[in-house]
Design a protein around this nucleic acid. Sequence first.
DNA 1: CGCTAGTTGATACGTAGTATCATAAAAAGC
DNA 2: GCTTTTTATGATACTACGTATCAACTAGCG
Lengths: 148, 148
Amino acid sequence: MPDLPTILARLDREGLRLTAPRRTVVSAILGWAEPFTSAELWTVIQVQAPTIGRATVFRTLDLLVRLGFVQRIHDDAEGGRCHAYLACDTGHHHHLICSACGNVTDFVETPAFAEVVRAVEGQTAYRIEGHRLELIGRCPTCQAGGPP
Amino acid sequence: MPDLPTILARLDREGLRLTAPRRTVVSAILGWAEPFTSAELWTVIQVQAPTIGRATVFRTLDLLVRLGFVQRIHDDAEGGRCHAYLACDTGHHHHLICSACGNVTDFVETPAFAEVVRAVEGQTAYRIEGHRLELIGRCPTCQAGGPP
DNA sequence: CGCTAGTTGATACGTAGTATCATAAAAAGC
DNA sequence: GCTTTTTATGATACTACGTATCAACTAGCG
């Protein structure tokens, strides 16, 4: 994820206001490497700036999702709830979620993926416009640690 | 999706009971080609058998997801809520969602997908165990209809 | 400074799903 | 067919997550 000034500059460019609550929420998210739920974020915000309303947290989260600084991920595999959020770079990429520790790693698309898309287009006559790919696996650390 | 007797036989094999509410919920889902929300299902159930409780619908839905007769899909692309459900065959496959009409088509993995997985394993040192792939595109009908 | 439109926080509301628990009813045994 | 045991059910209440509303506030601009 880019740093605070970069994000603020982006907000500015979009004609959005750089308010104190937004700065607070954005910096709370910054550097959050693992996925987080809205509840976790809200807890942190309440400690850092108790005056900020819950609605504002959701609104800012939404804003960042729209601008591509945050992605929604779907972790129902882990018995958790559906939505979690994840700070990320703006470049298009996908997530690799460790089934043991829940860590999320980014990976970029390999050329082979374009072939998959072409094959499916041939198979179904759809024109593919976008995709969502999440891989679940075991990270090197958890592989070393043996099965839990 | 298999037919009712097949599903009931499967329940039986799992040591689960073939109760009237389960039969009702399963047949309501059967043949539902498009994705549906729990609310839609609940509405239908209420008409067909008003005595069935909401909790039972959720429990049966959960059961079918565990047995692989129903999948959860994530359609936040369509401005809808996160979860929808989709009756499906037990074979492993993925969903192709039309961005215009919301129709869902199944497709099976192409060989190229295995290559993608291998590439990512090389890139990240993860051992890949599973994946979730959803493609978003435009179905032949909506392509013909021109942009909405 | 003073204006104005974009934001905010409080509150209420809505929806999806879960927990609890007394009751009902399948399946298994007789 | 009747009894027992175990599972499932329905009512209800509850939680989590998110949205709508709206008066009050404030960033950014001239």
